[in-house]
Design a protein around this nucleic acid. Sequence first.
DNA 1: GTCATGTCCATGCATTTGCATCTATCTCAA
DNA 2: TTGAGATAGATGCAAATGCATGGACATGAC
Lengths: 150, 150
Amino acid sequence: MGRSTSRLANDAWEALLTAHAVLIKQMAATDIWNELSMREYDVLYTLSKCPEPVRARELTRHVLLSQPALSRMIDRLIGRGFIARDPDPADGRGVLLSLTEQGRAIQRRVGGRHAVDIAGLVRDRLDPAELRTLEELCHKLATDHEEKTS
Amino acid sequence: MGRSTSRLANDAWEALLTAHAVLIKQMAATDIWNELSMREYDVLYTLSKCPEPVRARELTRHVLLSQPALSRMIDRLIGRGFIARDPDPADGRGVLLSLTEQGRAIQRRVGGRHAVDIAGLVRDRLDPAELRTLEELCHKLATDHEEKTS
DNA sequence: GTCATGTCCATGCATTTGCATCTATCTCAA
DNA sequence: TTGAGATAGATGCAAATGCATGGACATGAC
C-alpha cells in the first residue's frame, strides 16, 4: 500500500520478467520447434507482419538480437530459402528483407501451432477483461517516449 | 471488441513480448553493465532473493538459460568470487548455491543503478494504479497451473 | 540387498552470440 | 565539389549457448 512509485515500478517490472521467463520456458518445452528455433521464428513472424520489405536495421529494433547476430541469422534463413535480401534502391548502404513464399508458409505452419500453445497457457490464467487490460498496459510500456531533456 | 478469447490471449502475449524486448533493449543500452552482464546479474539477483542456499535445479527454473549454460555460468561466477557452490548434505547429486559477500556487494551495487533505470523507464509510462494492475496480472500469468487433465 | 529407472549436475562438441572493427554509403556544412 | 562525421550492414575472433551424453546418486519394486 505504501510502496513508493519507484518500488512499484521495480516490482511490476520484476513480475513482467518472471511471467515472460515462465511462459517462454513452457512454450519452449513444446515440440513444435523442430524446423525453426524460437528466435528464428521471431524473425519470420516479425517479417510476416510487414506488408512491405523491411530494412535490417528496423528488424534489429524489434528482435532481441545484436546487429551482427541478426545479420548472420538472416544469412542462414536466406540459405534455407525463407528470406530474400535485396539492395535498397533508396539507400545504397541498406538491404531490404522479405519473406519468400516458403518462408511465409513455414511461419504460418509453426505460427498456427504456436498460437494454440499460447492460448492454452494464457487463457486459463486470465479472463478476457484481464487480457485486454494486460495488452493495453504492455502497449503503453512499449511506446517510445521522446526523451526531451532540453 | 469481437475478438475471440484465443485471439485476445495471443494479442496480449505479443504485447507483453514487445514490451519486454523494448525495455530490455533500453536497459541494455545503459552503461551499468561493465562489471556484470545482464544475464549474470539476473543470476546474482535471483540468488540474492533466496534467504538460504538454493539448488542449481531451482535456479534453472527462474533463469532463462539451459541447464548446461547455467552450470558453466556458475563456474565463471565462482571463479570471480561471487558465488559459492557446496554439496547438498540432503542429496548427494545436488549442489547448493549462495552468494559470497563479494557477490552480494556487486549485486547491490549494480542492482541499485539498475533500479534507477527501471524506475525511469517504467514510471512515466504507467501511473501507480496501472503499475499495481500490471504486477497483479503478471503474477497471475506466472502462477504454475497444475495441469490436471485426468 | 539388487536391479531398473529417474533425477541432478557436468562435459564434449558444434553452433550461435556479442564485441570490435571494417567497408561502403549517406548527409551536410563550407 | 569536397571532406568530416554519421549510419548500414558484414566479418574476424573469442566467448557463451544448446544439444546430446556421461557419471554419480536417489528411489522404489522385488
